[in-house]
Write a protein that binds this DNA or RNA. Structure first.
Lengths: 194, 194, 194, 194
DNA sequence: AATGAATGAGCCTTCATTCAT
DNA sequence: AATGAATGAAGGCTCATTCAT
């Protein structure tokens, strides 16, 4: 029994990573199996050894991408407002590379909306739940007033983040600085308002 | 010279309306000229008598759709907050029919982001400018504090509206009532905060 | 019985003339019924009142065009060499308008070769016969030596004219002057050589 | 890595040859990708694996065809008149197969004139240059008189060859023998005339 | 495990032609 | 006599997917 020359899992991951790369360049509408194969210098049919079909490949790529993306790990110690601040800061200082990644998120987002990949709702839900818990903790710590409905607040604040992310991509002259500080001020006033 | 048997403007409009209908059912990714023709019981080629190509048809359909959609004139008398209230109210009481329309907006929105129909930026820009003016007027009327940067405020508030609209479609159990009132409160506090 | 408002023959001729015009602009491969109708400000279907189909229209247009073209009338008094001279002179001093006409001839020529309009052989045959007769007359008048086979000579001289006509159209820097005088000299030497 | 089961170069060549065959049967106006595929018992889309599009296929087929056709090397030792003789001889003794090939030349020729494949001018130019050089050499060897302008002579002699080739195809009762000898005599007299 | 080659299904688009009025 | 409107038929091309090796 000879050892595997190429780890199948490894190869699978390579394909997924190539998929995400191509996705970030071309977008979901224009991605072609051929592009991915070419990127890896593999035959098209090889991809079908690892994935049932294009949809399967995309789905698994999305999953992988999202897992990599949302790692709220070390942020446990931050308050809700601090984290919001941190997120917007990342929006602001994004690299071109990150901007491209953002495009992938948008693709997943809209595919999810359109029902093509309904199963990705959970990601957004997970994130919302995480933020809701944060607000509750802050309320107990007295950082946020008790009258605020955490679910409701996170819903619209999350919506704003989504909308701002879209603007970030769309507008060439997106004046993040001003907009974010206006938004942050509003959230702060609202959450602490006595 | 025989009188026109079919009003071509009328027919053109029929095609556009059919296009929007099919769009709301299938989405921009899956719309086929065949579908539209079938819906109208027309031959495929007939459509090409009225539109240069698929892109042209979609573009004109989008234009028509958006014109029908955004008719803010009558609202001139409302203040910014009142109008925001009004918009969210329409979100809340939407019919199934309107929900489907929302799907079309998402498509236009997405296509616009993705650069496929860059020309529709203007619609969103128009709307933003309209809101900015409203805030300025309210600031002069003393309804909104002078410290607020109208541009910045409208940017993030608009983003929220976009994000909420998306949630509206995505989530089956979207608790609009609570979310909107939380959002409105935050905006109000922010704009009037002394 | 009211008099005809538009003479049908007149209208038919108009259509034919428009066809030739469009032909000279776009060539046989790219001519469209629509173009002809548009040129005349007529409905497409009107053309079908006068001609069975596109082929019929083209055929009749060709016929008309050729009849107009080859009018060897007054040239009766010229000798063969004089006429050759005259033809080449027209080649040389062609207007842009005539060059376009030449394109039509090429089209007819090749369509005829390709068997699409086999019936136009006769035109070229007519012309050849006309030239053959001229040579014979010149032979009797002692202008051309008796040893020359009129049929054979006209065949290759005609071939040269065809080939030169093609070069005239093809080559932007076609140096007619030199080429024609070389050709004429050769023909003269050959026909008169004792 | 499995060995190639089908030699792609071979297959590409097969497609080109099939294209030329269909071209010789149907002509450029009526050739369909379907025809070529059917001839080879291949799927239409297979052809698109080897050629970018129909134009590309035609262009490459033309190139291949012309390369096969014009191989004048070995004739270096012949004088201009000998070569002319040789060419006309080939005209005369053409097989049916060659006659069909001639049809392909006509197509290329016509397409080239019409500007559809402008790039094939070079073939004809190459041939003309080759002949011009031949005449110059003969002039130095004293076989052709110095007064002859090589460029001009080749132009009209080439034109004659073109025209005669066309007649060859068109006329069922083309009396080559007589015509060619008349033409050759004329050329000889002209080139050597003192 | 890898893939080269092939393809079917399907889409957009063009254009000559028809037919009721 | 004229034509507006509609369309069938056909062609080019794309792309995910298969299958033998």
């Amino acid at each position: 029994m000879t050892p595997k020359l190429v780890d199948t899992d490894q190869r699978k991951r390579e394909i997924i990573e190539a998929t995400i790369f191509v996705l970030s360049e071309k977008g979901i509408k224009d991605i072609r199996i051929t592009d991915i194969a070419k990127k890896l210098d593999l035959g098209k049919s090889t991809i079908y050894e690892y994935f049932k079909n294009k949809d399967d490949l995309l789905k698994q790529s999305f999953e992988f991408f999202l897992q990599e993306l949302y790692i709220p790990e070390a942020n446990e110690k931050y308050s809700f407002l601090e984290e919001l601040n941190y997120i917007l800061d990342r929006y602001l200082k994004h690299t071109d590379q990150e901007l491209k990644q953002f495009n992938v998120i948008i693709d997943i987002f809209f595919a999810s909306i359109k029902g093509d990949f309904k199963e990705f709702d959970f990601v957004f839900n997970d994130y919302i739940n995480y933020m809701v818990e944060k607000i509750k903790k802050d309320q107990q710590a007295g950082l946020i007033r008790k009258e605020v409905n955490p679910q409701a607040a996170v819903s619209w604040i999350g919506a704003t983040l989504d909308g701002l992310g879209i603007q970030l991509i769309m507008r060439d002259e997106f004046n993040g600085e001003e907009i974010f500080s206006s938004f942050l001020e509003a959230v702060e006033v609202y959450l602490k308002n006595k």
